[in-house]
């Protein structure tokens, strides 16, 4: 295995840890009635966003899904503005008008979470089209899950990117469920990377819970995208640690799978990399965790105290609609 620097391994782990705890703290805020509406946690899938985004740079773009907090954070979002957004506050990335399902940072090339399954995919293709027309050496990653891989937007987007040879990395987060529907019930071909092959796109299936494996794959594809060899597709096998959204207890998720993925957890695997490859001690790791947690708590404090947009300001904002 290629040797990664200690700092790099720490940064991957820190990102995953922040995503995990962003979600867990936000769920508490939800239970306290401070967050409303749909809230889809990225629990158990942290390695995918983390590994993919680490393989990209700030001139690239991402499009996300309804389960978008992980992508947003891994892309480098500020925790204060993230919490503010999911709490509907004016300091949020979208001034509290978008919320969890529409969190985005267009100023920094995060083209956003999306409330419509699959709809981010053609938008990613369009961003790549612009890159290609401008002759830039950038690329776009678009995230989708197993359920979304059956929708026209995804399949059409895949074909367009293939036909036009665009620098797009399609990332299928195969968590094996679309709400309560297991993947076997929604397609006759459950090896989803084969969809890419069917469209002439080089595609691979990997363990989506191992951040190093995700990073390695994404890095090679991202670099090749920038050399004009795209598009590519990576199917990352993972599992949702909880229900579809905060109000879904997820009782349909099979026990054996939950048990398996409880041990095969992105954070446990990430921690192993820290101890075995980077030689960190347990104490050093808990220090890293403590710092990350302090940042999260500070961000929550900031967000909870933040104002909401006033009615007057809102009416002014929508005047021309």
């Amino acid at each position: 295995m290629k040797k990664y620097t200690k700092d790099f391994l720490i940064s991957l782990y820190t990102t995953m840890y922040k995503i995990r705890n962003f979600e867990e703290q936000a769920i508490k805020l939800y239970r306290d009635g401070l967050i409303r509406g749909y809230f889809h946690p990225y629990l158990g899938e942290e390695a995918i966003a983390t590994g993919v985004c680490a393989a990209m740079d700030s001139h690239d773009y991402i499009t996300s899904t309804h389960r978008g907090h992980g992508h947003c954070l891994a892309w480098g979002a500020d925790l204060k503005r993230m919490f503010s957004e999911v709490l509907g506050r004016e300091n949020g990335y979208c001034k509290g008008l978008g919320g969890s399902m529409h969190i985005a940072d267009y100023t920094k090339n995060n083209l956003g979470a999306n409330g419509i399954v699959g709809s981010g995919v053609p938008i990613a293709v369009g961003a790549a089209l612009g890159i290609s027309i401008r002759n830039e050496k950038h690329m776009v990653s678009t995230f989708i899950s197993d359920g979304g891989s059956g929708i026209g937007s995804f399949l059409e987007g895949l074909n367009l990117a293939s036909a036009w040879k665009l620098p797009v990395l399609f990332v299928i987060e195969n968590n094996q469920y679309a709400v309560s529907t297991p993947i076997e019930e929604s397609t006759g071909e459950t090896e989803l990377y084969k969809r890419g092959i069917g469209f002439g796109v080089e595609s691979i299936r990997i363990d989506g819970n191992d951040v190093i494996e995700v990073y390695k794959t994404a890095k090679s594809f991202a670099d090749r995208c920038k050399n004009g060899q795209g598009p590519f597709l990576m199917e990352c096998i993972t599992f949702r640690k909880s229900g579809h959204h905060v109000n879904d207890p997820g009782l349909y998720l099979p026990k054996e799978k939950l048990e398996h993925f409880k041990l095969h957890d992105p954070l446990i695997i990430g921690k192993k990399h820290l101890t075995s490859s980077a030689g960190l001690s347990e104490a050093e790791i808990s220090e890293i965790e403590k710092q990350a947690m302090a940042e999260i708590m500070e961000a929550i404090d900031f967000a909870v105290k933040s104002p909401e947009m006033s009615e007057e300001k809102f009416l002014k904002f929508v005047e021309e609609y």
Partner: peptide, 15 residues
């Protein structure tokens, strides 16, 4: 309704 998409913020949603 106002000629606007629906805001996430609950107070504004009522507006």
């Amino acid at each position: 309704g106002l000629n606007t998409p629906c805001p996430f913020n609950l107070n504004l949603e009522k507006v």
